[in-house]
Amino acid sequence: MGVDIERNIVVTSIEKLVNWGRKYSVWPLTFGLACCALEFIVAGSATIDMARFGSEVARPSPRQADLMLVAGTLTKKMAPMVKRIYEQMAEPKWVIAFGSCACTGGIFKSYNVVQGVDQIIPVDVYVPGCPPRPESFLTALIKLQEKIEKETVKERKLITAP
């Protein structure tokens, strides 16, 4: 009863393994600000089904999520909350700015709208559109996965002290 060891062992670096694991288990935070959030809901429904990319576990609590999906207009009144929620998320964490408003403020060049979430938190992937189609969430997710794959331990610490 010889075990075929050769075919059952994969040699890889820790970094690759970790990135591979992270890549396919991006848990988004359900976090809707405005119109774009509706399209995000559709992304979870049967027609688009983001579960195919390992991202179906939308978490209502920031402490259990790794992906913050800012979908909608960020206002100055809301900005402190968004910042706090971002800080509550555990490392490693990523941010997708979903929709023109989240990217740049969109059509609202006004006194109470933050002109893009990147003014307060770092953004990894930008998705333009007003609103973007639900499919573009998948594109964004794949782009993010590509990005995660290339990350090195130095860039993104494996263990971070709170």
Binding site: K109, S110, Y111, N112, I120
Partner: peptide, 26 residues
């Protein structure tokens, strides 16, 4: 917030539009 935005002498973009936005965590 200072000012009352729908007054006609309030600019639509606000007074500090060209400055970077900073959050104050309450």
């Amino acid at each position: 917030f200072s000012g009352h935005p729908l007054r006609k002498d309030f600019p639509a973009e606000g007074f500090d539009f060209d400055k970077p936005f900073e959050v104050k965590l309450e």
